[in-house]
Design a protein around this nucleic acid. Structure first.
Length: 519
RNA sequence: GGUCCCUUCGUCUAUCGGUUAGGACGAGAGAUUUUCAUUCUCUAAAGAGGGGUUCGAUUCCCCUAGGGACUACCA
């Protein structure tokens, strides 16, 4: 009797995909893969008012970039379509009528204005068993009047008739048995005639049933309405095939109270969307993980561990390992503060583990942004020399400089600019220059210069052999002064490798220039 | 306000009645180093509070406090 696992990720195309949504999708993906099941991509566009052009394409592109693959759904095809709710009107209408026919729902004519007025008039007004008879609906108006209004084309909604006084149980995989009394539930609007579309609640239940969804894995914000959904399954007589629920903890602000929002990203300088987003309404643009230089696997890995932990101490996990180890029952119940600094660490781990050949094109792009044209070979050479090096990372919030590793390719630039830009001036006050350019330095550099000039070849090893011999004989330590010449500061890779990259001509030129400047 | 969910180092978390409460990020210190780094070693850092249950509670129950979500003709 084991049914094939089928789960879905069903975003509403009202804007760019939030990072929390990405995590929800990821958990669905991991769960589906682990059980050899299907992952469905459904578009929940039942709110025509809030639809944002481009949002759907954005979401699809985001998952494509992230490497989360769907088995069926919008743009993926499948046997259970259409997968866009706005294209399923006929289906919903049929099921709304079923509920109407068996008395589980009723027609309501109250206008939004009337409802507003009621809410202003009565504190904590709730449209339910205790108040519905005082409202304008088929229950209070009677069949004749209802039909008359319908015939007159009066806009209406269909409301779910909730029977009060029953404890409704939701069996949640993460939270266990959650009980809510039906009396605190209101008669939810299931369908609105104005746009001939159902609301989320109805569409969600009908689609999950028809698409044979076995597990509903979604954000915790849905937990309060889960009992309503249970009641809906029952009203349709679908309780035997009702999916299992798992309500995921939310992603919270890095500091302070509340859930993670776009503002937090702006405040701390991290993206909350997978891809760059230009909002057609406000005209504002929001940064994306892709554009900021995050690697998709790093983003996935980071997100996966915000709310779930395999418990074996291993944190760097491939998608395959995550699929293997994922366990809904090991998901935490409490919301997770969004630790974007750890996100940097994940990216660094993945970036540094990447083969040089894959990083080189990124370095070329990064250099191009600095108006420097470099070949892939040069970029690869720089990466190999520099990838273990550091930068001074400016913390956007505290304005304090902190030591950071290379988490992003863009971090590389301030560390490697000297490969392309020769020192123009030398700051004698600089700690490194002051310490390492002594009175003997000019003379030493002249000697080193002559040795280098006379070398038969200029590769690092040839240099090293000659210079080591000279150093051994003279008993001097020329490297830091040499670094002053070529770099101007206390940073950069091994001097011989650096000189080899620059080439003999440029190396000697920089040395001559420094000797002339510093004396 | 009401309903529901939640509560271990600063952060993400491990522990499924008996542990010196472990790991990771971040922080600090030291060592190494031809610079900046890397690397290595070490350190500080937690069971919200109060009641129970039990031989024994971080773990089970209750209360309080705190946090979160929901409370639309939005999802």
């Amino acid at each position: 009797m084991s049914q094939k696992v089928r789960v879905r990720f069903a975003p509403s195309p009202t804007g760019p995909l939030h990072i929390g949504g990405v995590r929800t999708a990821l958990y669905n993906y991991l769960f589906a893969r682990q059980h050899g099941g299907d992952l469905i991509f459904r578009i929940e566009d039942t709110d025509s008012q809030r639809l944002v052009p481009g949002a759907e394409d954005y979401i699809i592109e985001a998952f494509d970039w992230l490497g989360i693959k769907f088995d069926e759904g919008v743009s993926f095809g499948g046997e259970h379509g259409p997968y866009r709710q706005s294209e399923r009107r006929d289906i919903y209408r049929k099921y709304v009528n079923q509920l109407l026919d068996n008395g589980r729902a009723y027609i309501a004519f109250d206008t939004p204005e009337e409802l507003d007025a009621k809410r202003n008039e009565v504190e904590n007004f709730q449209y339910d068993a205790s108040t519905r008879l005082g409202m304008r609906n088929s229950l209070s108006l009677g069949g004749e009047e209802t039909q008359r209004l319908l015939d007159a084309g009066t806009p209406y909604t269909v409301r779910f008739k909730i029977e009060p006084g029953e404890d409704v149980h939701v069996d949640d995989i993460i939270r266990g048995d959650v009980v809510i009394n039906s009396s605190i539930l209101d008669d939810k609007v299931l369908y609105k005639s104005a746009d001939d579309l159902p609301t989320y609640h109805l569409a969600n239940i009908v689609d999950d049933h028809l698409m044979e969804v076995t597990h509903v894995i979604r954000g915790e914000e849905w937990l309060p309405s889960a009992p309503l959904h249970v009641l809906l399954y029952r009203a349709f007589g679908w309780q035997d095939t009702m999916p299992r629920f798992a309500h995921l903890p939310l992603l919270l602000k890095p500091t302070g109270n509340g859930k993670l929002s776009k503002r937090d990203g702006d405040k701390f300088g991290f993206p909350v969307f997978p891809l760059l987003w230009n909002d057609p309404k406000s005209g504002t643009t929001s940064m994306g993980y892709r554009e900021q230089g995050y690697l998709p696997q790093a983003v996935l890995n980071f997100l996966a561990l915000l709310g779930w932990n395999p418990g074996d101490g291993k944190e760097i996990l491939t998608l395959e390992e995550m699929v293997e180890k994922f366990d809904l029952t090991k998901c935490s119940k409490a919301g997770a503060k969004f630790d974007f600094v750890k996100g940097w660490w994940f990216n660094r781990e993945y970036l540094l583990a990447l083969p040089t050949a894959e990083v080189a094109p990124m370095v070329v792009d990064m250099l191009r942004e600095q108006n420097i044209e470099a070949t892939a070979e040069q970029a690869a050479a720089i990466w190999d020399m520099m990838k273990t090096k550091n930068i001074e990372y400016t913390d956007a919030q505290s304005q304090q400089t902190k030591k950071r590793n290379i988490s992003f390719v863009s971090d590389l630039w301030p560390l490697c600019d000297f490969f392309f830009i020769a020192p123009q001036t030398f700051n004698r006050e600089d700690k490194f220059v002051r310490k390492n350019w002594t009175e003997n330095s000019a003379e030493e550099m002249r000697a080193l210069r002559d040795i280098l000039a006379a070398l038969p070849a200029f590769d690092a090893e040839t240099q090293r052999a000659a210079v080591d011999a000279w150093v051994a004989e003279k008993g001097c330590k020329p490297w830091n002064a040499w670094r002053v010449c070529l770099v101007g500061q206390g940073k950069g890779p091994d001097m011989h490798e650096l000189a080899a990259f620059l080439g003999r001509e440029e190396t000697l030129r920089r040395m001559d220039y420094a000797i002339a400047q510093l004396g």
